[in-house]
């Protein structure tokens, strides 16, 4: 008889149980189960702190159910410079994230409106932009131009990927070219800044949107705060490089709460 077998964990089974992963909230310091964080809009259940959102979760938050069709999922860096330790780092990033690159691109519907959607993933090598990140953006922008669709890019990046040197830098020009073509075709490009958006990404497509919105408290800048700190050797102003400060400076259009992003994007799309 096998009455109880299915419910009893043997010693062997116990060792196989996945260790629960915890994320520490940078605001209140509490440790929260990773699954719990990401099932709650990647928000701290205690203090509302906004964790960085994995690209897949972001797509679930923004796209209408089962409408997202991915483009270029297979694309992955080729290590064009033969850079020391890079293949190793790439492998680790791929394993940890289950993604091939630091961005997911595709076409979906948002509140019923069809649009291109690109979402960077800061958990993959800090969302850095190399050849393939650039290529996935230009491919999507070109597809939007072809299909007459608006484009939305969620930026989350430490900047250009150093391990791809000049080829990373080149992506700033290439994405500009593809977005300019969309611009010439009269198509809207909405840029959404999330924590963090810095370096070559800030100095190219992130700041080229017809409309630029940001999540609250996101770090947005060209040079990283640590680099500036080292240079000026002075205390940085309190709100320096935050979305709230950029709004005051006239650099962005609006700060939108995470739970309202989908509605606001749909509203903007409906106006174009």
């Amino acid at each position: 008889m096998k009455l109880f077998d299915e419910n009893i964990n043997t010693a062997k089974d116990l060792t196989e149980i996945k260790k629960p992963e915890f994320l520490k909230c940078s605001e209140c310091g509490r440790e929260i189960l990773k699954e719990l964080v990401h099932s709650n809009l990647s928000t701290c259940v205690y203090c509302g702190y906004l964790f960085r959102v994995p690209a897949k979760n972001r797509i679930d938050m923004i796209a209408d159910k089962e409408t997202f069709i991915e483009i270029g999922a297979e694309k992955t860096s080729t290590d064009p410079l033969n850079f020391p330790d890079y293949p190793d780092k790439l492998e680790k990033a791929k394993e940890a994230s289950g993604m091939n690159e630091a961005i997911i691109t595709g076409i979906c519907k948002i509140g019923g409106y069809k649009a291109g959607l690109a979402v960077m993933d800061s958990y993959f090598m800090m969302g850095s932009m190399g050849q393939m990140v650039g290529e996935k953006i230009t491919d999507l922008a070109e597809e939007c131009t072809k299909q007459n669709l608006p484009l939305i890019i969620f930026s989350a990046s430490g900047g250009a990927r150093m391990q791809e040197g000049i080829i990373s830098l080149l992506q700033m020009s290439r994405t500009t070219a593809a977005l300019n073509r969309m611009h010439d075709a009269g198509l809207p490009y909405l840029s959404v800044l999330t924590n963090p958006t810095t370096g070559g990404v800030t100095a190219s497509f992130a700041m080229q949107g017809d409309i630029i919105i940001s999540e609250p408290k996101a770090l947005i800048g060209f040079a990283g705060p640590r680099v500036i700190q080292q240079t000026v050797k002075d205390k940085l102003p309190e709100e320096f490089q935050t979305a709230e400060f950029l709004l005051k400076q006239g650099m962005i259009d609006r700060i939108v709460e995470r739970r309202e992003l989908r509605t606001v994007l749909a509203q903007i799309l409906s106006l174009h």
């Binding site: 810095t198 040079a223 500036i228 400076q249």
Partner: peptide, 10 residues
Amino acid sequence: GIKAEEKGQG
């Protein structure tokens, strides 16, 4: 620097 960032270097 601080000023460059405030004036929108990126």
